[in-house]
Write a protein that binds this DNA or RNA. Structure first.
Length: 947
DNA sequence: GCAAGGTC
């Protein structure tokens, strides 16, 4: 782009123009100002915000003399939230949040920054954006543009792209200004809106549905605040990792195995030889081999190999590595580590702690940084050795392959022997940063390894010994060790008699619970969160009482398990990382112009809205899952049900009024205020979005007066030929209402199993209406009688979901008559929708009977296979979802729609050569080596095994 | 009372 002027009017004379420069944070404004001004005549003054001062200096950009005004924001200047009318939780149906008006605004605590920008922008001709060079930075750039151009429409807008805060990069960028990238900003707008709508809708839904319905108080840590059961596209997959590992562990069944061990002691030392078969699960087989060895115990050396081994120092330090290593070495949580690191950064002792970069740029003066550390009492002498060319310890740091183009790896920026205001943690984190940095610029440790293979009666054994020749970086990086042991000298063909030769038993172990370092690794691999937010997502699990941390391991609470179980039983993967991964991929497409912003936003929200509606329709799954862990609650507060006015005098007790109420889950009912003495209730259709008692009275129903209710139905949930607006009567005269109750179902559920809140009166109005009229009703899709909408041939997947819902509701609450009506639907389904093609392979999640594998003939899922219960016809899930990692093993006692918990893992290996854990169905299951802790392999193939 | 993303 050409830079030729931008107008001289308003400048300080001599053709000089005023240029407003804005960085993402105060430290960048300061650094860039210092670099460009060379600290000559650099003036700083306070702005309206106490953190964001304004630097002033003169500079020439492509021949144009400029007076630079350099200030900053603090990350995002604006927030996205719903319009005020949707902000209160009871203001609307949560599903409305998928299309509710949202607005971007500058929040209260950023108004000072906005005012500074406005004041300075009025004086300027150019606006140069120095935001971080990533998508979020680009989005913040447009927030700044929005604020500045509102007060000065003539601003010439430019973007500086810099790869590091070093002189050459900064000076290059200011002479090569570009246009801001709207596509990048669009991608962030999409992400923000999706996160908000999904997060708020599911959070309100599950909080209002469950928080008062169960006795949760003892298990939650609300500190007097209202309990919120939040859902978020990052926090839930994080919870998913914790729950999944916990269930894998609980489902593990220990298994005995046998192994042959051999040792040989000589004057030079002792060697331990490991059996090359590792171990066998068959005792008889192991015994036979052992006896062969004992009969001919002479060992013959078949191979001796000497090799030099290197152990490399770590790559330069990124945020995630800092968090992981502080967790492992210092036993500090990621959240606390970041707090301490931010302190050290703000006090000037370390570089910016939120960075993805794990390579130093070539321009970095690494030796100067090392030189600063020479005076330290503990690592100063090592720093001196590093700088001594004769010592030969220096090595240019490795390249970890990541670069966020905005920040260098975390490194010390100022020497300190410790400050008086530092806590123990400040000392530890500073020490880790310095030692890590010094290790990065060091030679790897060198060792000599000897591997010896022997043969005893045809069985192969091996032993490895190691001697460390040069410790190098290990001298300063005290957190790592490289244990080795000496073994005697052996030569090819040598024979010896083992000192011991034993047959030992062992038992397979479950995979360990996740540590914070493991969890961060899982999140990083799955793209959950950013370097700046991952620790927040982990903390959120603890704050929401979804998990606890015990001895550095994460354990899901009952609440965390119940929520994951509920969605898992629905067949949804809302707790898996795929949703976020898909969003990330869509964002990428938006940012490179492959997809339009509106297209991605509409498609994603449409899908998630459908998912939300479906999840809500099958909320009984959440209730069942919660019921596995918690007692139902008797609580009924004003918050629990929203009263909407008197409808009539109770026709059962004749004492109290019947009032319209909206339950926490959004469903409506008309109940007697005499509850629990009087349990009269009229359940209303589940498809109502709004209901208001009117002043109109029914002329038919007695005893009167019965006030009519103005209903608003959700359009997509009722048949097309019904009006969304309906003035109805609950007295019994209203056929339309009866029909919609029959078609859509009601909010009644779980009545017989819930003694506290349950209003399972079999004579209640709606129950009677539903069971009596079901057989006569027409299908809402094809409008034919003889079958109901939930088994309509043209809507197989919906029918599956609905059948499941009704089946459980009716089966529990309404006895035999309803059960027989479900039975009546068995044949049509098999004949119409499914071709039986397999025998039972999993038990039904509802009744435990064997399931049959059927093939769907529906238009929506042609050829897709699903499990159907032979006895109760419960839909038990799509085959491809059950076998493709859609579910996880559960602890025994919990039915899963995928499979019941069984032997899942064999941490001892012994099956196949991969060494991976293998589940009962043959799928690999993630785990971690229990010898060295490395998640990339298991103990049976651990290189440190036996050392 | 809700998300996740910036940053102090």
């Amino acid at each position: 782009m050409a830079h030729g002027g931008g107008g001289g009017g308003g400048g300080r004379g001599g053709g000089r123009i005023n240029v407003l420069n804005v960085a993402e944070k105060p430290s960048v404004a300061k650094s860039v100002s210092e670099i460009l001004s060379r600290n000559q005549q650099l003036i700083s003054r306070r702005g309206r915000s106490q953190f964001n001062c304004i630097f002033e200096f003169d500079y020439v950009i492509r021949g144009q003399p400029c007076h630079m005004l350099f200030t900053s924001v603090l990350g995002h200047l604006m927030e996205l939230d719903f319009d005020d009318r949707y902000r209160k939780w009871n203001s609307c149906d949560p599903v409305d949040l998928y299309h509710a008006t949202v607005r971007k605004f500058v929040p209260e605590d950023k108004l000072n920054i906005q005012r500074t920008l406005e004041e300075e922008a009025r004086k300027c001709q150019w606006l140069i954006l120095w935001l971080d060079c990533d998508r979020e930075g680009e989005n913040i750039a447009f927030e700044v543009i929005d604020v500045c151009t509102k007060v000065n429409r003539n601003l010439d807008i430019k973007r500086a792209h810099f790869s590091a805060l070093i002189e050459r990069a900064i000076k290059d960028s200011v002479q090569n200004l570009v246009m801001p990238n709207k596509l990048f900003a669009d991608a962030v707008d999409v992400r923000q809106e999706i996160d908000l709508r999904i997060g708020a809708s599911f959070t309100r839904f599950q909080t209002m549905l469950l928080s008062n319905a169960f006795v949760l108080d003892a298990s939650t840590n609300t500190d007097g605040r209202n309990l919120v059961l939040s859902y978020g596209p990052c926090q839930f997959p994080t919870l998913g990792f914790v729950v999944e590992r916990y269930w894998e562990r609980e489902a593990h069944e220990p298994e005995d195995f046998w192994t042959i061990n051999c040792t040989h002691r000589s004057e030079e030392g002792t060697a331990t030889f490991n059996w090359m078969r590792n171990h066998l699960f068959d005792y008889a087989c192991a015994l036979v081999i052992y006896e062969l060895c004992v009969d001919e115990p002479t060992a013959t050396v078949t191979d001796v190999r000497h090799q030099e081994k290197l152990k490399y120092p770590p790559y330069p330090l990124s945020t995630i590595e800092l968090e992981k290593r502080a967790s492992r070495y210092l036993h500090m949580s990621a959240e606390h580590t970041m707090k301490v690191a931010e302190d050290l950064y703000n006090w000037g002792f370390i570089s910016y702690p939120r960075t993805e970069t794990d390579r130093f740029s070539l321009e970095t003066d690494l030796r100067a940084m090392v030189s600063e550390q020479q005076g330290h009492e503990r690592w100063g002498s090592y720093a001196q050795r590093l700088l001594d060319p004769e010592a030969g310890v220096w090595r240019n740091p490795g390249n970890g392959g990541h670069d966020d183009k905005a920040h260098p790896p975390i490194h010390p920026t100022r020497f300190s022997n410790g400050e008086s205001n530092w806590t123990q943690q400040h000392h530890k984190v500073y020490e880790l940063v310095v030692r890590h940095f010094l290790a990065c610029v060091s030679q790897p440790a060198k060792g000599a390894e000897t591997a010896v293979h022997v043969d005893i009666a045809g069985e192969k054994f091996s032993s490895t010994g190691r001697v460390i020749l040069e410790k190098n970086y290990l001298d300063v990086y005290i957190y790592e060790s490289w244990a080795g042991s000496l073994i005697p000298t052996y030569t090819h063909g040598q024979q010896f008699m083992p000192t011991t030769l034993t047959l030992d038993s062992g038992v397979t172990r479950p995979p360990p619970l996740l540590t914070e370092a493991d969890l961060l690794t899982c999140m990083d691999k799955a793209g959950i969160g950013t370097d700046a937010t991952m620790h927040d997502h982990i903390k959120k699990l603890l704050d929401r009482s979804y998990a606890i941390k015990e001895n550095a391991y994460f354990i899901p609470t009952d609440l965390g398990q119940a929520l994951v179980m509920g969605y898992d039983d629905m067949g949804y993967e809302l707790w898996k990382p795929y949703l976020r991964a898909r969003m990330e991929s869509d964002m990428k497409d938006v940012s490179i112009g492959n997809k339009r912003r509106a297209e991605v936003l509409d498609a994603c929200l449409q899908q998630m809205k459908a998912c939300f509606i479906d999840a809500r329709a099958r909320k009984e799954k959440l209730f069942e899952a919660m019921g596995n862990f918690f007692e139902r609650s008797n609580r009924s507060s004003n918050n629990d049900q929203t009263s909407g006015g008197v409808v009539r005098k109770c026709d059962l007790c004749h004492n109290s009024d019947m009032v319209l109420k909206q339950k926490p889950d959004g469903n409506f009912m008309v109940g007697c205020l005499g509850y629990p003495l009087c349990r009269n209730v009229v359940w209303l259709p589940g498809s109502i979005s709004q209901a208001v008692v009117t002043g109109n009275t029914c002329l038919t129903c007695t005893p009167g007066p019965v006030f009519k209710i103005q209903f608003k139905f959700r359009r997509l949930e009722i048949p097309p030929d019904y009006n969304a607006d309906h003035l109805g009567c609950i007295g019994g005269c209203d056929d339309t209402l009866k029909q919609l109750i029959d078609i859509c179902g009601t909010g009644a559920r779980n009545t017989s199993s819930t003694p506290g809140r349950g209003r399972g009166n079999p004579t209640s109005s709606s129950s009677g209406q539903r069971s009596n009229s079901r057989g006569r009703m027409a299908c809402i899709y094809c409008r034919q009688t003889g079958h109901s909408s939930d088994v309509c041939p043209s809507h197989i997947s919906q029918s599956n979901r609905r059948t499941q819902g009704f089946g459980q509701q009716n089966g529990r609450g309404q006895g035999n008559s309803t059960s027989s009506s479900i039975g009546g639907r068995i044949n049509p389904r098999n004949q119409d929708f499914g071709r039986q093609n397999g025998e039972a392979s999993i038990p039904c999640s509802s009744c435990g009977s064997p399931c049959t594998l059927l093939t769907s003939n529906s238009a929506r899922n042609p050829g897709r296979k699903f499990y159907s219960c032979q006895a109760c016809r419960n839909f038990n899930g799509w085959e491809d979802m059950l076998s493709g990692g859609g579910s996880v093993p559960r602890p025994s006692g919990f039915a899963s729609n995928a499979r019941r918990g069984g032997r899942a893992n064999r941490s001892g290996g012994g099956h196949g050569s991969s060494g991976a854990f293998v589940s009962a169905t043959g799928e690999p299951v993630s785990g971690r080596c229990f010898i060295c802790g490395d998640p990339s392999h298991f103990a049976n193939v651990c290189p440190n095994r036996g050392r």
